[in-house]
Simulated scan of single mutants.
Amino acid sequence: MAGTETDAASTPSPVRARKRLRLVLALALAGAIIAATAVVGVAQRTQVLTAAQVDYDAALTGYTSAQKQASASVAAGADAIAAAQETLDFSAGKVATEDSRTALAAAITDARARLAADTTVIERATAVARTAPAADTSFLSPGSGLDAATRTVASVDLPATDSTPSIADSLVAPQQAVRDAVAAWEAALYTNHVQAVGWLPELDQCVGSVDVTAYYAGIPSIAEHWSCGGKNFPDDAGTIITLTGVHSGLYRVDGIVAMLNSSRDSVADLPGGHDLLYQTCQNGQGATMSFTALTKIG
């Protein structure tokens, strides 16, 4: 009987077996739920991080574009300042009054101060914008580091390039005023009187240049003997001169465009396409007939 009782006690009852089965099923279900929840959590975190990365990349791209524009404007400003300084230096002693040069000098000083300030702003902004985003280690706040970096980049200020005159623009007017003053000064320095239309008799009068267009195949030309004033006529390109009488006006000298020999060249060799030519025989020699081109500017 004792052996029979032991065997009966070690054999699971149907009730006990069902309880064990339910426990196993419950544990399996709980594990499945936890696993599913973990999968969903990872997917959501990935989605949030991806969106945060997209926002950060967009903000950085926008900043980079604006930074390039601001840097280009600053570079153009530096070039403009250098050109304006050259104009100021060149004009020394070549203006009737110093008003225009004083204004240009002040404009250059202001431009340099603005250039320095803009350069500093760009350098600081670049350092801030390029700061690496903090690592996103928070499980509860995925993407928080990227979001913070996005806000930082979006808050960076750069010098305006579309709403205010550029550094280069600020120098245009004062620089042109100095150029005009120099032109007026040069024009006042040299004046040539075109006293008549004719040929050798008028040239021999030695009282000014003579319009010789009719003798030069209709090409607008004036001439003067070397000893009567030809040696003093400016032939440096860019010089501004005043003509009075026939062809009166303000002219820019474009330089010597032809050197002909009267013994072998003819009017067919004359250079065309200029507003006016000034001819004289260098050192009084027909073998060196120089033709200086003039462009009328006023």
Rank of each mutant, 00 (worst) to 15 (best):
E5S: 11
E5R: 12
T6R: 15
R16K: 14
R16A: 15
A17M: 14
A17V: 14
R18Q: 12
L21K: 13
L21C: 07
R22Y: 10
L23K: 12
V24P: 00
L25S: 04
A26R: 10
A28I: 05
L29P: 00
A30M: 12
A32K: 05
A32Q: 08
I33T: 12
A35V: 13
A36V: 13
A36G: 14
T37S: 14
V40E: 06
V40D: 04
Q47M: 12
L49S: 07
A52N: 00
V54G: 03
Y56V: 01
D57E: 13
A58V: 11
G62Y: 06
S65F: 12
A70H: 01
S71H: 07
G77S: 04
G77K: 00
I81M: 00
I81D: 00
A83K: 05
A83S: 11
D89K: 07
A92W: 03
K94G: 01
V95I: 10
V95S: 04
A96M: 08
A96W: 03
T97H: 08
T97Y: 06
E98P: 05
A107G: 01
I108A: 00
D110Q: 13
A111L: 03
A111C: 04
A111N: 01
R112M: 06
R114H: 03
A116G: 02
T119W: 01
T120S: 08
V121I: 10
R124W: 07
A127D: 11
V128N: 02
R130A: 11
A135Y: 10
S141A: 14
P142C: 04
G143K: 00
R151H: 08
T152Y: 02
T152K: 06
A154D: 12
D157L: 12
D157S: 15
A160W: 03
A160S: 15
T161V: 11
D162Y: 09
D162Q: 12
I167P: 00
A168Y: 01
D169N: 08
S170L: 03
V178M: 01
D180S: 07
A181Q: 01
A181R: 00
A184N: 11
W185R: 05
W185K: 04
A187H: 02
A188C: 06
Y190M: 09
H193M: 10
V194E: 03
V197E: 13
Q205M: 11
V207Y: 11
V207T: 15
V210C: 04
V210L: 06
D211G: 07
T213D: 06
T213E: 07
A214T: 11
W226M: 05
S227R: 15
K231C: 10
F233T: 05
P234Y: 08
D236K: 15
I240P: 00
I241M: 10
I241S: 02
T242P: 08
L243E: 04
G245L: 06
H247T: 08
S248F: 10
G249E: 07
Y251H: 08
G255W: 05
V257Y: 03
L260W: 04
N261W: 09
N261C: 08
R264D: 09
R264K: 13
D265F: 02
D269L: 09
G272D: 10
G272L: 11
G272W: 12
H274Y: 15
D275E: 09
D275H: 08
L276E: 05
L276N: 05
L277M: 09
C281W: 06
Q282S: 14
S290Y: 14
T295C: 11
G298M: 09
